[in-house]
Amino acid sequence: MEREFATLLEQCRRGGIEVRVDSRQVNSGDIFVAVPGVNEDGARFIPAAVAAGASIVVCRPGGAEEAAALAGGCRVVHHSDPREALWRLAEARWRTSELPLKIVGVTGTNGKTTCSYLLEQLFAQAGHKLGVMGTVSYRWPGHAEAAPLTTPDALSVHAMLAAMADSIESYAKEALLYQAVAEAMDLAPTQEQIDTYSAYTEVYGANYCTMIAMMDTVTDALTTGAQVK
């Protein structure tokens, strides 16, 4: 199972194939990932994805829907956790693990959007180019759109990170350090919190999380709390 999925990841990295989680968006040759949800199981839409032209279906083992995919001539790749499979395929498709980005997550009960706007203005005034994905909008140099959902799905997150990198790189390579943000806001996050925020924002766009992505060249203006302040 793992070997077959690893082969599929490499196929995605080479390009020329799209990953879909919505059967209505499937085109000929696409990969369809049957992600289980709260109200619906994506496996129920495998027949629709096959009818739309999906060439590969990623799903949990077993089930009548898998049999329908095989009957339709689809290649079926098993994964015990289709949701994990989705973000890994999205990462491979957009090659986001190779992008020189630093990502900061702003989490909490209240004030997340306010903090993201303050941080955005702080670093913009310092001359840095950045992108923001939040509950209100998604924006980066040359692009702005209202956020249709509180939390974007994994495919949207990785696609937007790639778009941010392309856009920001056309202006300049910048950087944002977790330590600089923490010191600028008089915070002292633990390493465990930093690792958790990084993992969730990079991979999932965690619930109620705003992300600020910037390029990976460290500038003196952001390397110490005193200078940032």
Rank of each mutant, 00 (worst) to 15 (best):
A48K: 15
A48D: 15
A48W: 11
A48V: 12
A49F: 07
A49D: 03
A49C: 14
V50G: 08
A51N: 15
A52Y: 14
G53Y: 11
S55V: 02
S55E: 10
S55P: 07
I56A: 01
I56Y: 00
I56D: 00
I56S: 03
I56M: 01
V57A: 14
V58Y: 00
V58R: 05
V58A: 13
C59R: 10
C59D: 15
R60Q: 10
R60D: 02
R60M: 15
R60A: 12
P61H: 08
P61E: 08
P61R: 04
P61I: 04
P61T: 09
G62H: 13
G62R: 11
G63L: 06
G63I: 04
G63C: 06
G63H: 07
G63R: 01
G63T: 07
G63E: 06
A64F: 12
A64I: 14
A64W: 02
A64H: 07
A64L: 13
E65W: 14
E65S: 15
E65M: 07
E66V: 15
E66K: 11
E66D: 09
A67K: 15
A67Y: 03
A68T: 12
A69R: 05
A69F: 12
A69L: 02
A69C: 04
L70E: 13
L70S: 14
A71G: 14
A71P: 00
G72W: 14
G72C: 09
G72I: 04
G72S: 03
G73I: 01
G73V: 04
G73S: 00
C74V: 04
R75F: 05
R75A: 09
R75S: 07
V76K: 10
V76N: 06
V76L: 12
V77F: 03
H78A: 03
H78Y: 12
H79T: 09
H79R: 01
S80F: 14
D81K: 04
P82D: 09
E84K: 06
E84L: 11
E84S: 13
A85S: 05
A85R: 02
A85K: 03
A85I: 01
A85T: 06
L86W: 02
W87T: 01
R88H: 01
A90M: 05
A90D: 12
E91H: 06
E91S: 07
A92Q: 00
A92T: 00
R93V: 09
R93G: 01
R93M: 08
R95C: 08
T96G: 03
T96K: 01
T96I: 02
T96E: 01
T96C: 06
S97H: 11
